[in-house]
C-alpha cells in the first residue's frame, strides 16, 4: 500500500543526454513537509536530473522508477507531470515574446482548476498578494514572459509561478544562482512561504548560501551522476568550509577500498 506521506520517490534513476549517461543511478524519498537539497559541483548531473524529472524532451530517463504521490511519473508527459503536482523552477527561464505574465499564469492556473471557477475568480487577488510577497511591482503582470527581465526578475517570476501553481513537489534548479543578497532573501522568503506541511521542496544548488535562508531537512551530495553522501543540514556547512574536493577525495578513497 502507498504511504500517503511519501510525496516523491525515485529508485535507481539513470538519465541520458545526447546518448551520454549523466545520471548513473540515484534514489531518493521525499515525504510531506520535507525540504531536501541536492548539492554538487558543476557537471555533477544535478540539473540534468531536475530537467529529466520534469519531462524535458532532451533528457531521457533510461532506467529506474519515479513516483509522485504514488503515481508513475515516467508514464506522464511534461504537462501531466505538472498537473500531477510536479514543478521545476528553471535555472534559465525562457522568454516568450508577446505573452504577458498575467495571461500565461491565468492559463496555467486554469489548466489545473478542474473547472473550479473560484480559482479563476480569485486569480487577480492571489497574484497581487504574491507580487507583494515577492516585492514585485504590479506592472509585472503586463510584461512579456521573461523578455528583457534581469536575472533577479526571472528568478522571482519562477517563484511567483510556484506560489500560483501550488505544487506538491517543487524542484528548484539553481534558483539562487546570479542573485544578489537582497534578491536571494526575497526569493527565499517566497520559497519558505510556499513550503508547508502538505508539500515538499527539492533544492538543487551549487552553493550553501541559499540554505542559510531555506533550511533543508536533508542534504545529498551529487558527484559524477551519483549521490555520494547524504546527511542533515550540517553536511552543507561542512561542504561550505571544506569544498567539494575533500568529499571527492574521500569518495575516491572509498571506491578504492
Amino acid at each position: 500500500m502507498h504511504d500517503s506521506d511519501l510525496l516523491f520517490s525515485m529508485r535507481d534513476v539513470h538519465v541520458e543526454v545526447e546518448g551520454k549517461e549523466v545520471v548513473k543511478g540515484v534514489s531518493l524519498d521525499i515525504r510531506r513537509g520535507e525540504k531536501h537539497a541536492i548539492m554538487g559541483p558543476n557537471g555533477s548531473g544535478k540539473s540534468s536530473l531536475a530537467n529529466a524529472l520534469a519531462g524535458h524532451p532532451a533528457y531521457s530517463i533510461t532506467s529506474g522508477t519515479a513516483l509522485i504521490a504514488g503515481r508513475d511519473l515516467l508514464q506522464m508527459d511534461a504537462t501531466e507531470r505538472s498537473l500531477a503536482g510536479l514543478f521545476l523552477a528553471f535555472q534559465y527561464p525562457l522568454a516568450i515574446p508577446g505573452v504577458t505574465v498575467a495571461n500565461f499564469l491565468r492559463a496555467a492556473v486554469k489548466a489545473r482548476s478542474n473547472g473550479d471557477e473560484s480559482v479563476i475568480k480569485d486569480f487577480r487577488k492571489t497574484i497581487k498578494a504574491n507580487f507583494k510577497l515577492l516585492e514585485i511591482d504590479d506592472s509585472f503582470a503586463t510584461r512579456y514572459l521573461n523578455e528583457g527581465f534581469s536575472g533577479g526578475e526571472k528568478k522571482r517570476l519562477e517563484i511567483l509561478q510556484m506560489l500560483m501553481l501550488k505544487p506538491l513537489v517543487a524542484i528548484l534548479d539553481e534558483t539562487d544562482s546570479g542573485l544578489d543578497i537582497d534578491a536571494l532573501k526575497v526569493v527565499s522568503k517566497g520559497i519558505n512561504y510556499s513550503a508547508s506541511s502538505d508539500n515538499s521542496i527539492l533544492l538543487v544548488t551549487h552553493y550553501q548560501r541559499i540554505l542559510d535562508y531555506v533550511r533543508p531537512n536533508y542534504v545529498h551530495v551529487m558527484m559524477d551522476g551519483r549521490f555520494v553522501r547524504s546527511g542533515g543540514p550540517e553536511l552543507a556547512l561542512q561542504l561550505e568550509s571544506e569544498g567539494y574536493d575533500r568529499i571527492r577525495e574521500e569518495t575516491a578513497a572509498k571506491v578504492e577500498v
Binding site: L83, A107, L165
Partner: peptide, 27 residues
C-alpha cells in the same frame, strides 16, 4: 522545443503552448 517545454511544464498541453507562442508572436 525549449519554449514548448517551459510552457508544458506549467500544465499547458503542447497545442495550447504552441498557440500561446503564436498569439504572443502576433501580439
Amino acid at each position: 522545443e525549449e519554449q514548448l517545454f517551459y510552457l508544458t511544464s506549467r500544465g499547458l498541453t503542447e497545442d495550447e503552448a504552441r498557440l500561446m507562442i503564436v498569439n504572443g508572436f502576433i501580439e
